[in-house]
């Protein structure tokens, strides 16, 4: 059952990314291009996505108070206790730079893999490579703080 609902979520997520236009890099770059021909579409996507999710968090909180967890068992994801860290800030800035350069973030990069051509595949491979080196970079950042 977990797999069925994971597939359902992935399917609706992917279809939503395509319908919203977020797998079109021109729309994403247009949103970030404040000094050019600014495209507000991404704000409508974000607003539309946050509405059902805000409701879902309320339902989760209510169920938790009643001693119930997710439908298929287990517990709801705990809030991170990390707070605002240097890794969060540096990582978000690096991510934003890459997001602007290509107009792709991880979700759309995968959703468009089937029709994104060789460029889309190369982006995804480079993204995975970036994920592979991330632990080493994180360790270096830690060492830098200590020294």
């Amino acid at each position: 059952m977990r797999l069925v609902f994971a597939a359902l979520a992935g399917a609706i997520f992917g279809a939503g990314l395509l319908v919203s236009g977020m797998t079109d890099t021109v729309k994403v770059q247009g949103w970030l291009d404040v000094f050019g021909d600014w495209d507000p579409t991404l704000a409508f996507v974000m607003g539309g996505a946050i509405l059902p999710m805000a409701l879902a968090w309320r339902v989760a909180a209510r169920r938790e108070r009643q001693g119930a967890g997710p439908v298929l068992g287990g517990a709801y994801p705990a809030r991170s206790t990390l707070g605002i860290t240097r890794d969060l800030a540096i990582g978000s800035v690096l991510f934003g730079m890459g997001w602007a350069l290509a107009g792709l973030c991880p979700g759309p990069a995968m959703a468009s893999l089937g029709y994104g051509g060789a460029g889309g595949l190369v982006f995804l491979l480079a993204m995975v490579a970036g994920m592979v080196v991330a632990p080493a970079v994180r360790a270096r950042l830690r060492a830098g703080t200590a020294g």
């Binding site: 977990r2 609902f5 994971a6 359902l8 979520a9 992935g10 399917a11 609706i12 997520f13 279809a15 939503g16 990314l17 395509l18 319908v19 919203s20 236009g21 977020m22 409508f44 996507v45 974000m46 607003g47 539309g48 996505a49 946050i50 509405l51 059902p52 999710m53 409701l55 879902a56 968090w57 339902v59 989760a60 967890g69 997710p70 439908v71 298929l72 068992g73 287990g74 517990a75 709801y76 994801p77």
Partner: peptide, 18 residues
């Protein structure tokens, strides 16, 4: 519309799979 779909997918993944 696409945003509502994305948010609904996230809601399913949270409420059903946790």
């Amino acid at each position: 519309l696409g945003g509502l779909m994305i948010g609904s997918a996230a809601a399913i993944y949270l409420l059903v799979n946790g």
